[in-house]
């Protein structure tokens, strides 16, 4: 597999007024494989959003390099190619919808790219179907729910036909139904269309659904691997101010109490299974 995004020793600090330059990214080296579903987890201010903004040249590194689809993001002349390859979806759906009709908004990116009208039509319909919003194509965005708006925003990015989508806390402002819909959409895009997905989040349950989980703290990558493996490092995660899913937490506590349970039972099903085997191994004595 080839890497769609490659950062090496990426450093970034915002220019500060009072002499102290807060370091936001402190040497991040990552390689995002084409077609993968990667979640980046960390608490506010850990640098995860800043990292996301480097993935399509909204920000340029203060040190180190970022390559997108083989192009150095510092290369100004290839900016459009970079942005076409990696689409971005942001937290607030209201602030990324440009037009006042859903389909017009989805058409925005292809229009900018100079795609012929007939093909724009095709791409718009296709993108709206992909996020399950085709029936709403003639609606005004402000009348949609948060989750629907966010899916329109995703369609707006899909219409560019990008190879990768980076989503910066796309569900932070949504209710549970909206969150579920958006997450399902993202997973489907990854699975059926092979779009690489980078999901920035602080929701443990969302991160658990990715193929690969990267945990960030203080501008560095502190853990990187399959979600099951990462979440079983309960203590390390706690140290950087993160909690783990309640299932893992419960198993960890039982383990602390001296019982032999696996820590990588993440889903409800797996956790129940693990508890079941534990209880069966130590059957209650019936009086």
């Amino acid at each position: 597999m080839s890497a769609i995004i490659q950062t090496s020793d990426l450093r970034f600090s915002y220019p500060a007024a009072e002499g102290v330059t807060p370091v936001v990214l402190d040497g991040v080296s990552l390689s995002i494989e084409e077609g993968s579903f990667v979640a980046v987890l960390g608490h506010n201010g850990c640098g995860k959003s800043t990292l996301a903004k480097h993935m399509n040249a909204i920000l340029l590194p203060s040190g180190g390099t970022v390559y997108v689809d083989g192009i150095d993001t510092a290369d100004d002349s290839r900016l459009l190619d970079i942005r076409r390859a990696v689409g971005m979806v942001f937290q607030n759906p209201d602030n990324q919808i440009v037009a006042n009709v859903v389909e017009e908004d989805v058409a925005f990116a292809p229009e900018n790219l100079g795609v012929p009208p007939a093909e724009i039509r095709q791409r718009v319909d296709d993108a709206l179907k992909a996020v399950n919003m085709y029936d709403h194509r003639e609606h005004a965005p402000h009348l949609l729910s948060g989750g629907q708006k966010q899916r329109v925003a995703i369609a707006g990015v899909i219409a560019m036909r990008p190879r990768c989508i980076v989503l910066d806390e796309p569900t932070a402002m949504l209710d549970p139904i909206g969150r579920k819909d958006v997450l399902r959409t993202i997973k489907e895009l990854n699975r059926t269309r092979g779009v690489t997905v980078v999901l920035i989040t602080h929701h443990m349950d969302e991160a658990a659904q990715a193929d690969r989980l990267i945990v960030m703290a203080k501008g560095r990558v502190v853990a990187d691997g399959a979600p099951k493996a990462v979440f079983s490092r309960v203590e390390e995660l706690r140290k950087v101010g993160l909690t783990v899913p309640q299932t893992t937490q419960l198993l960890w506590e039982l383990r602390q109490a001296g019982y032999d349970v696996p820590l990588d039972a993440l889903s409800d099903e797996e956790c129940a299974q693990a508890l079941y085997s534990l209880l069966m191994k130590n059957p209650p004595v019936t009086a």
């Binding site: 689409g87 229009e111 100079g114 012929p116």
Partner: peptide, 17 residues
């Protein structure tokens, strides 16, 4: 920022749906 990410670069070479 969102517009820039969707390749907006003014009216030049723009087509319409």
């Amino acid at each position: 920022t969102a517009m820039e990410c969707r390749c907006y670069h003014g009216g030049e070479g723009r087509t319409r749906l």
